[in-house]
Each structure stands twice: as C-alpha cells, then as structure tokens.
Design a protein around this nucleic acid. Structure first.
Lengths: 315, 315
DNA sequence: TATGAAACTGTTACCGATAACACAACGATA
DNA sequence: TATCGTTGTGTTATCGGTAACAGTTTCATA
C-alpha cells in the first residue's frame, strides 16, 4: 500500500503538501495539486485510516445503538445498516453495532441511535459524543425520520379517491411521536374531506389486529378500508378478513405501513407505505459525520417521504 | 482517556512493560504485572485501537461481505451481524459491511463472507486476506454452518415418532451444499426406518410451495407431514393447506427450517429447526481473528446444531 | 527600490502503540 | 572467580498521518 510519503516523493513535494491537498486543497497551488493528484492516481493511494485516526485523535468509528429487542423487530435494520455502512465507508469510517448491553465499551466519534423510546432519554443524554437519532423525538436531538403524518395523509387521500366509503384507522397503542403523527395524518385528511374518523389502537402484533377484526366483524360494512399503522397489523387484518370470507380487495381494502419485507411475505402482497430505509440510513451517516466535523453543532432534522406501493390488498 | 504512558507512569515502569503485560504477559514478572493491572484499573485504561492498528500494520477491521440480494433475503442477517459485531468488539475490532458492489474499497485484516453461491468462488479466491465463510462450501475455505444434515435427520425422526404416516420432503431447487445436506438428512432417516422417501424440490418462494400443494392436493392423504427446507416454503404449504380446508396439525403437519422471524410471522407459528445465528456469528468472528493472528493458517470448519422448536403446525 | 502582508510550502514534533535491540541482574557452570 | 546463558526491563525507532510553526516567494504599495 502506498503511503503519503510515497506520494510526496513521486510528486516532489513534502508530505505536508500532500496532506493539504487532501484536507485543505484551497491552500495549495493548482499546479502542485495536479502533480499530487497525478501521483495519487498512479500509486493508487488510499489513506491509512488508523494513522489518520491517531493523528486526529479520532477513532473513525461511529456506533450504531439499537435499543429495540431484535427478536421482535422487523428486518428493516438490515437496510438501515447497509445504508449507514456504505455511507460511512466513503469517509473511511467504520460502523460498530451495539445493543443495550454494551454501550459503554470502547470509544467512538459519534452515535446513531434507533429504536429509542421515551424511557431511553437518560441513556442518550449520557452519550458524550455527537448523536443522531433514527426516529422522531421530542428531546431536541437531531434526527432522521419518515414523514409519518404526510405518509398517512397520502394513504387516506388515496383510499378516498379509490372510493372506499368507510376508512378505519388501526393504530399502534404506544405513546410515541411516530404513532401520534401517523394518526394525525389520517384524522386530518378525514376531517378535510368531511368524513368521520374512526380510530382504534392496538398492540403491534398481527394476532391482536386479527382478534380485533374478528370481534368487530359485524360492524364493518362492505367497502371499508383498513388503514394500519404497520404492516404487522395489516397482516393480521388481512388474515382475519380472509378467515371471515370477506373479499379483498373488492369489498375490503387494507393498507399497511413500512414496506419492509412483511408486505412481501403477506399473501396477497400488502399495499403499503414504503420507507426508503437505506437512504435514510445514509442520511443518518452523513448527519453524524457532519456533526462530528462541526464539533457537535446541532443539525436539525430531516424527514423522508414514503412511497405508496400498491399490492393486492387495495383495488 | 488514559494512555499506555499514563499507566506506565502510575505503575513506575516503562511503556514497554505495560505493552508486554497486555500482549505477552508471560514475559513479565508477576510482581510488576500486578502493579500494572492495578494502574490500568485505577485509570480505567482502554487501549487506543488506532494506535495499535498503526503499530501492528493492521486495520482492526473485519469486512462482512454479503453476497445475497438483501431485499429477497430473510432477516437473519441482523442476528448474524450482532453476533459478529459483539464478538469483534471484544478485541477492539470493528465491522465493515459490504455488498457485491463495494468489495474493493479500503483495507481490512480479514473477511467473513456469507450468502455465497458457486459462481462466487472466483471472487472469494481473489480476497487477499484471511477469509471465513458463513455457510458450507466445497472449495476448501474455512467455514461455519449449521449441521444441515443432522438437522433434517432430527426433524424426520421426530415426525416419525409423532406418528405421521407419510413424510414428504420439499426441498430447495438449487445446487448448493446446504440443500443437498438437508435432503440427505431426510432420505437417510427414512431409509433407516424402512420408509419410502418422497422428495420434491422447488424454488424458495412461498407461492411456489403453495402452488405445488394446490396442484398435488389429492395425492396427499391425511396424516402427512411436509418437511420443508425453509420456513418460506413451509409458509406457502401452510397457507395452501388452510385454503384447501385441511386440518393443521391434526391431519397435516408442517415443519420448516431456519427459525428466524418467518416462523413467528406465520399463523399458526411454524414448527421449525431453529439456527442459533447469533452464536454462529460470534464463531465466525472468533475464527477470522484467530486466522488473522495465525497468519492465515486454515482453521477447518465448525458445525452448529439446530434446535427443534415446536410451533402450532405439528401435533 | 525597499517593505510588509499574503500566499505557499517545508520542518518538526507528536498522536499511542509495538518490535527489535541493548543492557542489567542473576544463577549455573567450569 | 571468570564466563555464559537466561530472564526481565528499558531505549529507540517506527507505523502513516496532521497541527503548529517557520521559512520562502510574490506582489502591491510607499
């Protein structure tokens, strides 16, 4: 592997000049810059991350802290991970995976935290390095999230346009911002269209939503659409409607939310609001790195649109 | 953060002695060792990975190369990842996630490769650092895998003991060692018990197995168990049996394989052969690190047992 | 033409660890 | 007692970068 020194020799300049070309190119004459770039190309120079880290008193490590229990968790973390990892890679940063049990181990330059619940505030506040959250929060931390409200608004609008007479919202029974935002998107559009909102909330398990449908089956007339706050809930709804011999999608429609894996496992495939998790992961990575380089300066937040992906559960 | 030098001062020895206590403790007198340990504890010393990496001409990075397409992939990679990451963490190593598209980027001390197919041999052979595969292979590379043959043998045995008269094997239609091993486990136990093997292979999609059941429904008498090479196939089978109004688990049994996520999504939960992916991940990590420290010396392979996890699809 | 600020570029020291070598203390051997 | 191998510890140089400072060139200005 070629080093800075090799490049410097080849370009007939000092190591420092090469280092500058990389980190502060504006301080170097164009002429020399060209020479250096040329030498780097010829030698296929790749900076040594360890040396860089040592000199900068950095670790070149970002930790990803996953607070959710993984065995109950949906597989979207895989996408998040690749999104983050690939982006970090570009800056010679690497990713370290943490769970609740090993936060304290070792050093890093920053954190990305996901699966956070309210009771984790304390934990987050104790982190001594720049933090970006994956998921909305109200404690003022920078975050990346889906635009949950807009997402559900879009779905509701779509359901109305498709002519579903009754639109029932099945939300998640948890006091977290994302859950409220999703519900709000629904109620707002319903109100705007002079329709009456009909909202239920359940624990996020397909058997709960299945049980719910079973119990209330006679209340649901034909031409009803069930707008669910997660694909998991949507799956339970679909399952029970089929059990009751209801017709999907003619008489009953179902829309889920998340669009990661579950929607494709379901039969028929779910109509869902798909999040672009990989992109959001990349955004998380960019945001922490920026924050690291700006000495922890707040970066605000960034919301991503979801895509309405039509499956076999709506007409 | 305390450094080697700090510890050395506190213990009244040279840096080198401290370094030795860490890396070659047998070369240091017990008396001094105690002093050093004491100092390390008091200062809460954590070695600086970057410095270590630089001095050792290592990167302290292991790359995980995932060759499968992730959107069709089951979420067990999350478990694999945490298994690997947590283990690497213990040795101040970090994990870098790669997909097919960015193998060449940057440096590392070793590779863990998973989702490998035969056509990837070339790619693997070109890796210039120690490699451990997750998944059986016949190219002589060290690997970690489930004991697929034994796993299916166990399931077959179980099905026989439970009194299922006919046991049909639904395998995956792919020419890879794991697929053959699973089938072999089945056929062997069937032969040993004087029963006739009945084997089909399909593409690994639930709609294929569902279609298959539909097509052959009249051939399957009551008291048949379907032993499937994946939970995905098992899900399709369950779906179609229900569709045909077959009784699960009384008249028809279904056993899947993998035990990661899908078995829990299915309704009822699948009886499946659960792999302990997290442990296997840790084993991968240990193996590459050992290989790295032994200059690439072959490590052989390691097979993990699966656990027969009873769900609602067998009696 | 002398002068000083601005714009570049080079030198030195250092980040925190380790290997290789140098050296001291020790007991065993002749 | 002189010599030697062992064992244990310290010294030095080095890994590949970067910041801080020092030195040089350039050019507008007096």
């Amino acid at each position: 592997m070629a080093t800075l020194t090799d490049v410097a020799k080849k370009a007939n300049v000092s190591k420092m000049t090469v280092s500058r070309v990389i980190n502060h190119p504006e301080q170097v004459r164009d002429e020399l810059k060209e020479l250096v770039y040329e030498a780097m190309r010829e030698l296929n120079y790749r900076p040594n991350a360890a040396a860089k880290a040592l000199a900068n008193k950095r670790t070149q490590i970002i930790k990803l802290l996953i607070l959710e229990e993984m065995d109950t968790t949906e597989p979207y973390y895989m996408f998040l991970l690749t999104g983050i990892a690939n982006e970090l890679d570009k800056y010679a940063y690497s990713l370290q995976l943490l769970t609740r049990n090993n936060v304290q181990i070792g050093d890093s330059d920053g954190f990305i935290v996901c699966g956070m619940r309210k009771e984790d505030e304390e934990l987050i506040k104790n982190l001594d390095k720049p933090v970006v959250l994956f998921g909305h929060n109200e404690m003022g931390e920078d975050f990346i999230d889906s635009n949950n409200e807009q997402s559900m608004a879009k779905a509701t609008q779509y359901a109305i346009e498709e002519g579903y007479e009754n639109i029932v919202y099945i939300g998640i029974d948890i006091d977290e911002p994302f859950a409220h935002a999703r519900e709000k998107g629904y109620t707002k559009v319903m109100a705007d269209n002079g329709k009456e909102a009909c909202t239920y909330t359940l624990g996020n398990r397909s058997r709960y939503s299945a049980a719910f449908i079973k119990e209330h089956w006679n209340e649901f007339q034909k031409n009803t659409l069930f707008l669910c706050a997660s694909d998991r809930l949507a799956m339970g709804v679909v399952r029970e409607i089929k059990e009751q011999n209801g017709n999907i999608p003619e008489d009953y429609g179902v829309i889920g939310h998340d669009g990661v894996f579950l929607d494709q496992i379901a039969h028929p495939h779910l109509t869902t609001l798909k999040q672009s998790i990989t992109e959001m992961g990349a955004a998380c990575a960019r945001m922490v790195l920026k924050k690291v380089n700006q000495d922890g300066k707040p970066q605000g937040n960034q919301l991503f649109e979801t895509e309405l992906k039509r499956g076999g559960t709506t007409r």
